[in-house]
Nucleic acid binder design. Structure first.
Lengths: 358, 358
DNA sequence: CTGAAAGCGCTAACAC
DNA sequence: GTGTTAGCGCTTTCAG
């Protein structure tokens, strides 16, 4: 027996209520031009039959789906998840649905099928929430895509004529470094993220620039490249302590790696922050409870995600007005410094948060 | 100017290629009954115009969208994200799209609008990936929903005639307890999750049962209720050490709280695992790098998510065959014990994984 | 205020 | 092999 869907249609409602489908349509769309009695009768039939208008049919005729395509990568990690969470909240608020596509790899650059799938379902806009890694954004700006809908990128290097929303990673790095320098650390090492990541390069550039401006020599032995994972953090820590003997502190490009650095330093018998200061990046929920608690740079991924959704909806709605279009722009949000025990040398160890270094 | 979508239709393709829309339809659906020349010509026009069939129109006429609705809660946490990640991977593989709805709260029980939104978009099935908390699943089984499509639940207490896929939390708790008992610990305390969570109750029941079976007295002072967060872990640890003076170990209901317990014990000068043994639950990526590394119970959320998707697709497809229906069933997956430093008392501290305690 | 006709983009069923 | 007709469930003219 073929599956039978017990979904009532506008036609059934109309026939039961003894009106035309047109009138039912007016009722469900809350148009004013229906007499109160008719409206009431139709509404009753709707409730009775459990009638639910088909968003599909509506999208087809209105050429508008009220749906956003979201492309993510790395949902198994906390950063991308927090971003998706923000996207979902903002979309819900604006009454948009979400069509989700997860890229299997960060390096994915066969993006045609993704767009095909999204466009064939008539999404009104696309949020590209995939970090910029290697050449995985090389296609941006190419018009080969025949893209007739707005596209907003999350966390990518700003480009002309493209809408981008991102945390300012360079600024975050500078904030971390300013803090360490203020605490009197000078021989600051760095464990970077994988350098094919734009974010990793930004953080590292901040480390280098801050040292140079402070008049500190930067040598190749003063940093090591990690891959974001705690495992790589452990390996990097070992290598870095080996090749930078009189290092007094480390700026670690994320908290997971910083966790391993703490562990490694503990095992070596080094005191934190007296012998070695540590600053991380991300402010994952756990870092407050590391021992010692980790000083880090907080990114509000939830917030930039909401911003991105609001931006794309603004662009979409503008496309339906007679008004002028919304120009693509880059929105860069500053992160904030969260000072905890791991970097507070020679002062009383209270915890406090500074929102900006200005 | 009203937005103009440069989307070509099957009609345009047909007219340019000089055939009927029907023939184009046959080509894009790879039907055999088209002559090679016609097929070639049509295909060329398709490429030329960048034509993309509308999945919307297709769904409407086929009464099938090849789309799954996914309802989640707590995407800002890592567990739900890993589940979503598994769902996305499995859906992609089966060539299904995903319509995502995130509940704003775990306790949400106004679920009508969620179903409305999903059903109005003609999803073929729904995966309910919201943990069971308080009465938030009370509606399950009520047929008021007029649900004409399959529904599979993730992580909920098994019920008759419902499809459920879940990790066996009770078994996980028993595995943790068996391990502690084997290591010679007897005065085992417990920090539970919030007890309105089904999972928290399961883990706690395992703690209690294991102690009883081992002939150990269970008192109300031997456990404290946390709320999964590291913050609550710290508070709970303080309280528990206070009220259970000769406790020799703790089974903590998740790794985040366990992290705080480690921190608290360190600050008190207690040695882990000699003075106090600790076992967590979840195996978050960081727990391997805690100091000491945390013994814990691993749940493979990614895997159960894939299973849930495969199950629902099986049910959906069965609905379209002449064959009999797939009966709803409960699938319970065993977690696994990961032994690390925090519980290995008086033995050499190598790390090893046991897949099951049988 | 209400209804009839046309059509969004596509496919199933039937002709030829 | 290929085209014609009808219609998925809805909304947009335009009459009345």
């Amino acid at each position: 027996m073929k599956q039978r869907l017990f979904r009532s249609t506008i036609k059934e409602v109309a026939s039961v209520a003894g009106v035309s489908t047109q009138t039912v349509s007016r009722v469900i769309n809350e148009r004013p031009d229906v007499s109160p009695e008719t409206r009431k009768r139709v509404q009753e039939v709707i409730n009775e039959l459990g009638y639910r208008p088909s968003a599909l049919a509506r999208s087809l005729i209105r050429q508008r789906s009220h749906t956003l395509g979201v492309v993510t990568a790395g949902l198994r990690y906390i950063g991308p998840s927090r971003i998706l969470s923000g996207i979902a909240a903002a979309a819900e608020e604006a009454d948009y649905s979400l069509l989700l596509k997860e890229l299997p790899r960060f390096h994915e650059n066969d993006i045609e099928p993704i767009f095909q799938a999204l466009l064939s379902r008539h999404v009104d806009g696309i949020i590209w929430a995939v970090p910029e890694v290697g050449e995985n954004h090389a296609w941006v700006g190419e018009s080969k895509l025949h893209l007739e809908i707005p596209l907003v990128y999350l966390t990518m290097e700003p480009r002309e004529n493209i809408s981008v929303v991102s945390i300012d990673n360079y600024l975050g790095g500078r904030m971390a470094m300013s803090h360490l320098l203020e605490q009197g650390y000078r021989r600051i090492g760095h464990i970077s993220g994988p350098l094919d990541w734009w974010e990793a390069r930004q953080r590292m550039a901040a480390w280098k620039d801050a040292l140079r401006e402070a008049g500190v020599d930067v040598k190749d032995t003063h940093w090591v490249e990690g891959n974001w994972s705690s495992t790589s953090g452990a390996q990097s820590a070992e290598k870095l302590f080996e090749q930078y003997k009189d290092m007094d502190s480390i700026f670690v490009a994320n908290d997971q790696m910083a966790l391993s650095v703490i562990r490694f330093a503990c095992q070596k018998g080094l005191r934190i922050p007296e012998d070695i200061g540590i600053v991380g990046f991300d402010n994952i929920t756990e870092s407050e409870f590391f021992f010692p608690a980790l000083t880090t740079i907080q990114q509000d991924q939830y917030d930039i995600a909401k911003l991105a959704v609001e931006e794309i909806i603004k662009i979409i709605e503008a496309g339906w007005q007679e008004t002028e279009q919304v120009d693509p722009k880059t929105i860069m949000l500053p992160p904030s410094l969260v000072v905890r025990e791991s970097s507070l040398r020679g002062k009383e160890g209270g915890e406090f948060i500074r929102k900006s270094i200005s």
